[in-house]
Design a binder for these strands. Structure first.
Length: 489
RNA sequence: GGCCUGGUAGCUCAGCUGGUAGAGCAACGGACUUUUAAUCCGUAGGUCCUGGGUUCGAAUCCCAGCCAGGUCACCA
């Protein structure tokens, strides 16, 4: 796939040599004060005294007409046509023009105007060669269609698939907006370790690595939670981290083994407070993308106009299945009619399966689902006055879980019991939580009551940028390496 | 991990029920100082993903493997 017949590369090498013979450095050098192409396009058009302009970019189209060449130059803001005439660019400039290939990097000095046909154009009077491209570039019209090719050549994809650069830019805007929003509210952004001796805070299989000097195995973190809560104990009352977590699990359009989480914790708040914060965070991100609250996703549209619906787990369950949570017979009947195997399953498990199948997937949202059955979330504080419920919500949009929040458990005795209960009878890697003595000790020193929130950044970016696969909101998603040796035998 | 689909020139793709490889763009040579995927004439370019098998003959049919996409399972 990366092999190229010599003939294609050779012609480019020949041109490189020709450039060198002209005294041109084929790898270019510093080129100051060039205007972003999008800004160049906004310059006033003056026939009398056309504005001088300097731009730089990659050649994506070329039309040679004997003694004049038309080039289309693209940078990270836009694209514009360049006209390079033999008489106008001088002897060396013309030598450069004749040896250009698609994909080369070029600086242009000239003046800004329009051609006869009305096309915005930089009329060059000087060409500065800035970098040779030795490999052929994608089809100038079809671009890159093959997903694998795009992912393995993301650097090309960014130039030749407009959506790829747009998504990268919008992702930056979203994350930046979240930081601003939280910073403005007085949160501290912190960095906690990615190498953990105990991979806790979530139910997921970790990656294992090894530290040589200490001669210990370490895990790549699967969540940010336990260190951020330690900081709550330490008195950092509003704290967040936006960071990479790693889960050694399957790959799908919604899962990459490493992905980005935003987790925040706020002392003396609770899950209701987190709901308001979540709505604010996401609406703020939408503002950063232009503010359109009616947004397309896939084949339909999502209306982010606040306030977003808030409904209890029990009410939604009843609404979508017709069964009452407290009525095991009705739950079993509903499960039967949904073709769920009921035999030998605990009622709570049945409820959750039914909820995922009949409720979650129908939730176009945005909608906050709150007050989960306590049995489903042992690490959450029980609801005041109703110990069967947990103070937790999840935000669903387009059937996808976008955010997850709790009133955090700060009782070390209950926490320790929960850790032990989780450990017994389960393989450790499948356990919801691993016994973390240091964390329990931290709680014993007193953690304030608090609300905690986690948002999957990649999925949020998918939704807000109308991207169907996580692979296109992560610049370099995990792929099997190319060219592995054939297995023996 | 299961199932389904795909892999042919640098890129985008055709290639029928098996008969020995094609197009457009890119490249190379030529013409052209206002083109818009420029146009016109000419040239060159291929382990048809890999390895087996069936057959007189395989890009095509069969088996195994590799890689990707989709989907289910697990999860966020």
């Amino acid at each position: 796939m990366t092999d190229t017949p010599d003939i294609l590369e050779d012609s480019r090498l020949d041109k490189l040599k020709a450039l060198t013979a002209l005294g041109v450095d084929p790898w270019g050098m510093r080129f100051d004060n060039h205007l972003p192409i999008a800004q160049a396009r906004d310059l006033p058009i003056q026939v009398e005294n056309p504005a001088p302009v300097r731009i730089a970019g990659r050649i994506v189209l070329r039309r040679g007409m004997g003694n004049v060449h038309f080039l289309n130059l693209r940078d990270w803001t836009g694209q514009i046509q360049v006209m390079a005439g033999k008489k106008q660019v001088g002897e060396q400039g013309w030598g450069i023009a004749k040896n250009l290939d698609l994909g080369d990097l070029l600086g242009v000095d000239g003046h800004f105007g329009k051609t006869k046909t009305g096309e915005l154009t930089v009329f060059a009077n000087k060409l500065t060669f800035l970098g040779k491209s030795l490999l052929p570039h994608p089809d100038k019209w079809e671009g890159m269609q093959d997903m694998e090719f795009r992912l393995r050549h993301r650097y090309l994809d960014l130039t030749y698939t407009p959506d790829t650069l747009r998504r990268a830019r919008e992702r930056i805007h979203i994350v930046r907006s979240m930081r601003r929003f939280l910073d403005d509210q007085g949160f501290w952004e912190v960095e906690t370790p990615t190498l953990h001796s105990i991979a806790g805070g979530a139910a997921a299989r970790p990656f294992i690595t090894h530290h040589n000097a200490l001669d210990i195995d370490l895990y790549l973190r699967i969540a940010l939670e336990l260190h951020l809560k330690r900081l709550l104990v330490g008195g950092i009352e509003k704290v967040y981290e936006i960071g990479r977590v790693f889960r050694n699990e399957g790959i799908s359009p919604r899962h990459n083994p490493e992905f980005t989480m935003m987790e925040l914790y706020q002392a003396y708040s609770d899950y209701q407070g987190m709901m308001d914060l979540t709505e604010g965070l996401i609406l703020n991100a939408i503002e950063a993308l232009g503010g359109d609250k009616i947004r397309p996703y896939g084949g339909h549209t999502i209306d982010f106009t606040p306030p977003w619906r808030r409904a209890s787990y029990a009410d939604l369950f009843r609404e979508h299945t017709g069964a009452d949570l407290g009525d095991p017979a009705a739950v079993a009947a509903a499960a039967d009619s949904a073709n769920i195997i009921t035999k030998g399953k605990h009622p709570d498990v049945l409820i959750q399966e039914l909820f995922e199948l009949k409720v979650e997937r129908q939730l176009m949202g945005p909608i906050f689902v709150y007050d989960y059955p306590a049995s489903l979330c042992p690490l959450t504080k029980r609801k005041q006055g109703n110990p069967a419920l947990a103070e937790r919500f999840e935000l669903f949009i387009n059937g996808m879980e976008l955010a997850n929040a709790y009133t955090e458990l700060n009782d070390p005795v209950t926490q320790e019991e929960t850790f032990r209960a989780q450990l017994s009878g389960l393989k450790e890697e499948d356990s919801m939580a691993k016994m973390d003595d240091d964390f329990v000790r931290a709680l014993k020193h007193g953690m304030p009551p608090a609300g905690g929130l986690g948002i999957g950044i990649d999925r949020l970016v998918m939704l807000l940028t109308n991207t169907p696969t996580i692979r296109d909101v992560i610049l370099f998603p995990l792929l099997r390496p190319e060219g592995r040796p054939e297995p023996v035998g």
